[in-house]
Simulated assay, not measured.
Amino acid sequence: MQSKAKIVIADDEKEIRDVVSMLLTGEGYEVAAAADGREALELADPSVDLYILDVNMPEMTGFAAAAEIRKTCYAPILFLTAYSGESDKMMGFSAGGDDYLVKPFSNVELLLRVRAHLRRVKEYAPADGHTILYKDLTLDLRSQSVRKGNELIVLTYTEYQILKLFLEHRGKIFSMENIYQSVWEDEPVGDGSIMTHIKNLRKKLKDDSRNPQYIKTAWGKGYYVE
């Protein structure tokens, strides 16, 4: 029997916690609720399949909690935020987030995002333990981790999938639309979000955007790895 997907929801507004928890439980998910970022950290472990974190919480913000969760956990992180500005989105991606949902949101929209992220996790789960090697990078498909030499590079779920996509299709130029279709599937995001993920990925790999060794830019066309 297939186990239920486990989701952690953290929001300092009890009404939102209760509504989201009831909604997800009704869909058959196992749900653990937290009132702030610190409680979310206490609930974090490898058994969690998805984190839904409010950005503005007392004790510890969603961004701060995400940064700590990312040190040991790989599951996708969806932020709930009252702000939709590009700077807020960039902060969220930099903190380790994979997606964001602006309040107020509909129950249908939340469920669509949750299903999409959980489906991606399941579909991209490797069946064996082989690796992908490129220069000094090693992608372990079993642990879904990345190393540069002997250094472990902590990536978000989305950053890992983008890098994996490039390395599995070396030489192919991926346009924004290609990346949408391959990584987000039916959950498109704006060009600015893709560019932010690429920027953060390059930064973590210490890849100079002016003279990149890994992810190269085909001006006006997209990105690729040689």
Rank of each mutant, 00 (worst) to 15 (best):
M1Y: 09
A5Q: 11
K6T: 11
K6D: 05
V8Y: 01
D12T: 01
E13T: 14
E13L: 15
V19W: 07
L23D: 01
G28L: 10
G28I: 12
Y29Q: 11
Y29H: 13
G37K: 04
E39R: 00
A40M: 01
E42T: 04
L43R: 14
P46Y: 13
G62E: 00
G62T: 00
K71C: 05
K71I: 03
A82L: 07
A82T: 14
Y83M: 14
S84A: 08
G85C: 10
E86W: 04
D88H: 13
G92K: 01
G97I: 03
G97L: 02
D98R: 00
Y100M: 15
L101W: 05
V102N: 12
L110A: 09
L110N: 03
L111P: 02
R113C: 06
A116T: 13
L118I: 15
L118A: 14
V121A: 04
K122E: 15
E123Y: 03
Y124F: 15
A125K: 12
P126H: 08
H130L: 13
H130Y: 10
H130T: 12
T131V: 15
I132Q: 12
L133D: 10
Y134S: 14
T138R: 12
D140H: 09
L141G: 04
R142H: 14
R142E: 14
R147H: 15
E151Y: 05
E151R: 09
V154P: 01
T156I: 04
Y160W: 07
L167D: 11
S175F: 12
M176Y: 11
E177N: 09
I179T: 05
I179D: 01
I179L: 02
S182C: 12
V183Q: 01
V183P: 02
G190E: 11
G190R: 12
D191I: 11
D191T: 13
S193R: 03
M195R: 05
M195G: 01
T196I: 13
H197K: 01
H197L: 02
I198N: 00
I198G: 01
L201V: 02
R202F: 11
K203H: 07
K203A: 10
K204N: 06
D207M: 03
D207R: 04
D208C: 11
S209I: 12
R210C: 07
R210Q: 13
R210Y: 12
P212Y: 15
I215P: 01
K216T: 13
G220T: 08
G222F: 07
Y224F: 13
